[in-house]
């Protein structure tokens, strides 16, 4: 196996989150998730729908950050159509999270009290609706006790405990899939939907992940290593999907 960088490993882990999704809209937020979703479409999930980030569905796999790249538009997807699709359910979003907790509650709104935050962030955006309507994954490029917290300041994306408390209408389509970080891949495949360590990236110890996590993680008896990119995946990443190396930059700046 040839050498790969951390951003390439993470992009493959993001791609894996979309494996088996079929003919749905993949909505990756952020650079590495965008690279991952395009890689999934270029390889094992060819039926995925992707937008150009504006209002077009694009049939071909475009490079990230190349505005004038050739584009085969297969459909119109303005925000109103996206909103319809969110509630319809044929979508899988991969969002960021300034904070996430043990049951997958996410915060992108603000740090500190809602009434007068210490740091105002984006706002709720589509997170409340996304999380109770269709599959959701997260990309957190800096795994630390600042982002993996015992309790999020504001619940924007809904976790398992909060969905259960809200009742069957909230749990019916609620599906938290993966959390990809710079250290590991996590999921919620536990009886009560608590976060579980799924794999650690090469060179990262289970203890490193535990230390960087501000709540109790479910750790299986044996934790595999996150799979490395194949040669063909590396070729696609370097030559087709991320020729400018934007994934590296996203990891470096976080």
């Amino acid at each position: 196996m040839s050498d790969h960088t951390l951003d390439e490993l993470c992009a493959v882990a993001c791609a894996e989150a979309f494996r088996g999704d079929g003919e749905i809209l993949a909505s990756p937020i952020g650079v590495v998730p965008s690279i991952g979703a395009r890689l999934a479409k270029a390889t094992f999930s060819p039926d995925l729908l992707l937008t150009d980030g504006v209002a077009s569905l694009v049939a071909n796999v475009m490079p990230v950050g190349v505005d004038d790249a050739p584009k085969v538009v297969e459909g119109w997807m303005p925000y109103r159509a996206i909103f319809d699709l969110v509630w319809h359910g044929r979508r899988h979003v991969m969002m960021g999270a300034t904070q996430i907790d043990r049951y997958g509650n996410q915060n992108i709104a603000c740090i500190g009290p809602l009434e007068r935050p210490k740091a105002q962030l984006l706002g709720m955006r589509g997170a409340p609706g996304n999380t109770v309507c269709h599959p959701t994954s997260y990309w957190i490029p800096q795994h630390s006790t600042r982002s993996f917290v015992a309790k999020v300041d504001v619940v924007t994306g809904v976790g398992h405990d909060r969905a259960r408390a809200a009742g069957p209408a909230a749990t019916r389509f609620h599906a938290l899939r993966r959390v990809v970080t710079n250290l590991a891949v996590l999921d919620f495949e536990t009886p009560d939907g608590a976060m579980r360590l799924r794999s650690v990236h090469p060179g990262v110890g289970v203890d490193d992940v535990v230390k960087a996590t501000g709540f109790e993680l479910t750790i299986p008896a044996s934790v595999p290593t996150t799979r490395a990119p194949t040669d063909e995946e590396l070729r696609l990443l370097r030559e087709v999907i991320d020729p400018k190396g934007l994934g590296k930059r996203e990891l470096a700046t976080k």
Binding site: V86, L114, P128, G129, V132, A169
Partner: peptide
Amino acid sequence: TRAGLGSDVFRS
């Protein structure tokens, strides 16, 4: 709508 269930939209 389902959107908002379980979230802190209810606090806001």
